[in-house]
Design a protein around this nucleic acid. Structure first.
Lengths: 330, 330
DNA sequence: ATCCTTAACGTCAACGTTGACATGACTATA
DNA sequence: TATAGTCATGTCAACGTTGACGTTAAGGAT
């Protein structure tokens, strides 16, 4: 079907190995032979079969990227950063969506391992997943985004979520808000999560205790933001500001306020997180914590490449800065 | 490094072929042997090596998806549809962004061919690309989205762009608009493009000639929409309505109007195309032509699977309906 | 004339599977 | 009791490359 080295070799009257050498620019070859073979390669349109090559080199030039949902512009932008660096280095990217389903995360990890990807970039739902650990242990490098895990084969790219949310809370406090709720996103099985922690420390710093009923966990989608904030604002009318785990949740809050005739930001101020592209286009324009999503992707892929090329290297975590962007919603 | 069939076979005291048979549920195997081997597989955590399997079966269980830019929510939603169907059928997806760069399209096609993907789904910049044709000819099935190409190995998923834009134009005419411009997106090298055609026929149907200066081609991004419409509206203040090739362009128009203090929809009505998620959240909420993006992806992947599983099959083009959604911008 | 070096190739096995075919034991049938 | 048929398993080559190592001829040094 496709043209193989054998075809090229026969036509050139040389051994397959010789063709291999010109394809890989390796070993000693006379200029004349090289030119002749290159001409034949061009003529026949030969392309090396990467799967055969992978079988022997144990490299597929493919990495896996596991995101919650590519439909969320946050992940799309990160993916773009990953892809661009990957492509520049001759790598391809297998993309998996797992929604908020730990089982899907496991399936994705298994599938990628079966495909022998050279490494994985993961926004983990749960980073201590057994499969992840076994993958990491006996297999290939992994870059974790937004979760810290110490392991020789794991590099980590962190967002300074705590700091970002602290800035947001302080900003709201300065504007005189006293009752600030948080839509805290998915509930972490262990620990509190960076952003929630930022919320709580900022409030405690002001001597304001956090009460559990002002923190709500949910899947971080607009629909959930709408549902949760509608309920929250109806039941607790004294709340004057809401911080959301991400912009999609914040969009849901905007929607709820519109429906409840709550004026933003006068009656309820809103701050999101991520600064996805559309935060500046919604009405009112959303105040949010900006993350350089593209850079997150670039950094992750760069780190992964470093580990792939030198497995012995230990890579220290990097924490990317974030920045509060105040727009109309606060 | 990883566990192979050989390891399992040795531990079970059987031949590799026997292990292969239980892994693939094929051939006759005694229940006892099967159980014993399955136990060992579970114990060792053996996973079949797909690249080795691919080498012999000539199938990689991988398809390529080439989009302009995954950062555009339109493509992200289509990708999601593709991914979900792919995953349900045991397939993985290699994602490539090509922006508006024909050269990148070629590189992506070559890269995917080198990786021996089982098929490709492509939003073509130019569908008669040599590499695409050679790929299609000597290689594997392709699904083209939004472009028609007759070829035994090519299936096609079309959006009824012409009809959608016609609806939009008629809607604007009904509202009394006479001077309707179009930001027509990337200029097709051949033909006019469905959406532009819909624009022109709708106008001609009303006896309104289309003049070239009301049609502007550009890359379909918000930035371009902003630039082009700002210029257009300054130079031609009599224009009272703009139809955009996609919602991102329309967002740019909104931005330009805001800056020029043009009131939407009174002084300038705007209609987009795609109905991406955020069209309902911008201010004013964008009138647009709804495309079922997720279904586009599902249909494309389903068709690709059909062709992969039965290469002889010829698949007739499908044209998915679109629907005008009138919101606040018109 | 002999030995050594080196450039320019070639040979062979291996990567981890699967397909085609072979084998041996056992069962059923005439 | 010989024969065919079936079940359960084994053997071997092949998929398209590359790594390790071998070979050959030319040329230079001694």
């Amino acid at each position: 079907m496709a043209i193989t080295m054998k075809d090229v070799a026969e036509k050139a009257g040389v051994s397959i190995k010789t063709v291999s050498r010109v394809v890989n620019n390796q070993g000693e070859i006379s200029a004349e032979t090289r030119q002749r073979i290159e001409a034949i390669i061009a003529e026949l349109g030969y392309r090396p079969n990467l799967v055969a090559r992978s079988l022997i080199t144990q490299r597929t030039l493919t990495i896996g990227l596991i995101v919650v949902d590519i439909t969320n512009p946050f992940f799309a932008e990160v993916a773009r950063g990953v892809q661009d660096v990957a492509r520049q280095n001759g790598y391809n990217v297998l993309l998996c969506n797992i929604d908020d389903n730990l089982h899907e995360q496991q399936k994705a990890l298994e599938s990628l391992a079966a495909h022998s990807v050279d490494g994985i970039i993961l926004f983990p739902l749960e980073y201590y997943d057994d499969r992840l650990l076994s993958f990491v242990n006996q297999y290939r490098p992994v870059v974790l985004i937004n979760h810290l895990l110490q392991h020789p084969n794991v590099a980590v790219v962190l967002l300074d979520g705590a700091h970002g949310v602290q800035q947001a809370v302080n900003h709201l406090l300065e504007r005189g808000h006293q009752e600030i709720a948080m839509l805290a996103g998915p509930k972490p099985i262990t620990g509190r999560g960076q952003r929630l922690q930022g919320y709580q420390t900022a409030l405690q710093g002001q001597g304001l205790a956090d009460s559990a009923n002002r923190v709500i966990f949910s899947i971080p989608t607009q629909a959930q933001g709408y549902e949760q904030s509608k309920q929250l604002l109806s039941q607790h009318p004294h709340i004057t500001a809401i911080i959301a785990y991400n912009d999609l949740l914040a969009f849901g809050v905007i929607q709820a306020c519109r429906e409840l005739n709550i004026v933003i930001p006068d009656q309820c101020a809103i701050v999101g997180f991520d600064d996805i592209y559309f935060s500046n286009l919604v009405h009112p324009a959303l105040s949010t914590v900006r993350v350089n999503k593209y850079e997150v992707g670039q950094q992750a892929m760069t780190r992964l490449l470093t580990m792939i090329n030198d497995p012995k290297l230990t890579i220290s975590p990097i924490k990317l800065g974030v920045e509060l962007i105040v727009r109309e919603s606060s």
